[in-house]
Design a protein around this nucleic acid. Structure first.
Lengths: 342, 342
DNA sequence: GCGCGTTACTAACGCGAGTTACTTCCCCTC
DNA sequence: GAGGGGAAGTAACTCGCGTTAGTAACGCGC
């Protein structure tokens, strides 16, 4: 039934309700400070409903000066598969939060070293941005932040003084390792989720050190190996670890995907998990509960992360600013890959 | 350098170039049919560059009647994890193709049974839609299609006469099973990726039957079990299968995620893969190459799928219509989970 | 010298809303 | 009866751009 052709304008609504366009605008936008009798209000609302009136987005944006749209810039490199695994969830979180505030989400997927997005801003197509996977070496980002454009970083980037939302990587990692400590493990290795140039990787490693320190255990560099996003790197890392430190009884792998590779290396080396070696992961990707054995891990609340980013941006747009850094708590999910030291 | 505050308008450009706004518009939009001397053209372009001019999106949309935005509606249910795994790739494909044509992508993630999106259309915020995970029981969708609104379905939905883009599930499944046949297997089971109400599941099952038929093998209902998106369902399905048909030597599992569960069941039953049982998956999720053993599977070209959907929509918007159904070819990726029948 | 066509350009309108400034009417108070 | 003030509503301007219709200058042929 004609969702499309006879698009009603506010003038049509006005005519049908027997009032002026101005009044229509006042009623539908619930403008404070103007008094409108219930009878008139009802007439306008009825007319709008009957005509299926929906304000023209562009017209509203032009007149009102705000696009009611937020941009989501995806800047992660293609290697960062694990991010992909949770991207959908994050997107859902942002989307639902944006809807709440009457906003829509424009997604800008960019290859890491190409593609502009500041024209999105200059053309006023978005009122604010959420930048996922931000990099310090991103001149556009730096310029926009300095310019005071509303931006929320999703991910860590301490150098930049923009509000950010992230999961508490450090505390999560610490919890993971404390779990191993509480099971009696003393020689606990760590395989990072990524090269340490990535702050998320450095933070998780810091959490590992925190836990060791709190337990009075020494930090040994040869117990730490760098992973690199994918399972293959985890496999190699674990092989090297086993060769160097055969008596290791527990490993914290700062990414489920990398942990998947580590599990494989352990299996191939004839070590049983968790009987011989306990493993804790990080992220809680959907498949983690089906690993062999089901992986004890740290849950990254992807959806909540997106929602928090969305909410933070909407708050900035509403004027309530604040440059704070919001860290979301993680949660330890105990499954079958960890056991008391034998 | 003020990316933000002193937004230049086309009037500013006109003033700086010493021409009228009309001329600026003609030059920058490369309008056919008007002749403009190179000298003037250059002056305008220089002025635009110097001022960092970027047309106001909303104004352009209002005046031109087109938003230069396409909508991506995500309608898959939360259970469909496997889709999530490849969503990022698909999104990238759509995005890059949209950019090519000067479009942006507005993403609308919806829970399956709530949320309107036709207001996106009525408010003219998008010129066209890509609907991912379309359902027949979606009244909005049906209404929009009947209305002639430009829509591309990403996924199968034979009942609806709208152009669609999908991967060739049937042919892919057939290829998978033919691979097993060529290895000498005769008793080949099938675990579906989802309940058969999902067309993708039905299509893949049809491909399985095609291959059997082509090989002169009988179709046996007790060799077919329904999976349901996740690994757990694959595990259960495989257990049932082994109990009922102990002498099965090959299984086609129409989803890598489900196959992951099936592998687990096989392992727990003491069957070696591929020595005792060969397994072929479908989708080629990033983790598949790291399964134990690395999974032979059918690659679903996620990025190309997104690109095809984007291109199809852009073509429709450009007037070249056509209600065809585009099917993308898949590719068999042979890894270590399949071997000749022992 | 007139007419016609082309080149080069512009004034002015319209898109569909939000918003400001102003009018009209009516009731209440002094 | 004058003056004030709120209630109810509107005409007209604005946002920044695309576009139509039209003008002025120039060249060219007869």
């Amino acid at each position: 039934m004609g969702v499309r052709r006879p698009r009603a304008t506010s003038a049509d609504v006005a005519a049908r309700a027997g009032v002026s366009r101005t009044t229509v605008s006042f009623v539908l936008n619930d403008r404070a400070g103007v008094t409108i009798p219930d009878e008139t209000r009802r007439r306008v609302e009825d007319a709008a409903r009957e005509l299926g009136y929906q304000p023209h987005g562009a017209a509203r944006a032009l007149a009102g000066g705000t696009s009611h749209t937020i941009g989501l810039v995806l800047r992660q490199s293609p290697e960062q598969v694990s991010v992909d695994a949770l991207l959908a969830e994050t997107l859902w979180g942002i989307g639902s939060e944006a809807h709440e505030g009457g906003y829509r989400v424009l997604v800008e997927p960019l290859s890491p070293d190409s593609g502009r997005y500041s024209d999105l801003v200059r053309s006023q197509r978005v009122d604010g941005l959420i930048v996922s996977g931000p990099r310090t070496d991103d001149p556009e980002l730096v310029a926009l932040v300095e310019d005071g454009f509303p931006i929320i970083l999703q991910g860590s980037l301490p150098e930049l003084s923009a509000p950010s939302v992230d999961v508490d990587n450090r505390a999560g990692a610490r919890t993971a390792v404390e779990h191993l400590v509480s099971l009696g493990h003393r020689r606990i290795a760590c395989i990072t989720n990524a090269p340490l140039a990535y702050t998320a990787a450095a933070d998780r490693l810091a959490g590992y050190r925190d836990a060791l320190e709190a337990a009075g255990l020494p930090y040994q560099a040869d117990l730490v190996v760098e992973g690199a996003f994918d399972a293959a790197s985890g496999c190699v890392a674990m092989q090297g670890l086993l060769a160097r430190v055969p008596d290791v009884t527990a490993v914290f792998v700062a990414s489920d995907i990398v942990a998947f590779g580590a599990l494989r290396a352990l299996r191939e080396a004839g070590r049983r998990v968790p009987a011989d070696v306990s493993v804790v992961g990080f992220d809680d990707i959907p498949l983690a509960r089906h690993f062999d054995p089901p992986l004890t891990t740290i849950r990254l609340p992807a959806r909540a992360l997106g929602a928090a980013a969305g909410r933070a941006l909407l708050e900035r747009l509403a004027g309530r600013l604040g440059n704070e850094r919001r860290l979301l708590p993680t949660e330890l999910v105990v499954r079958d890959s960890t056991a008391p030291r034998g």
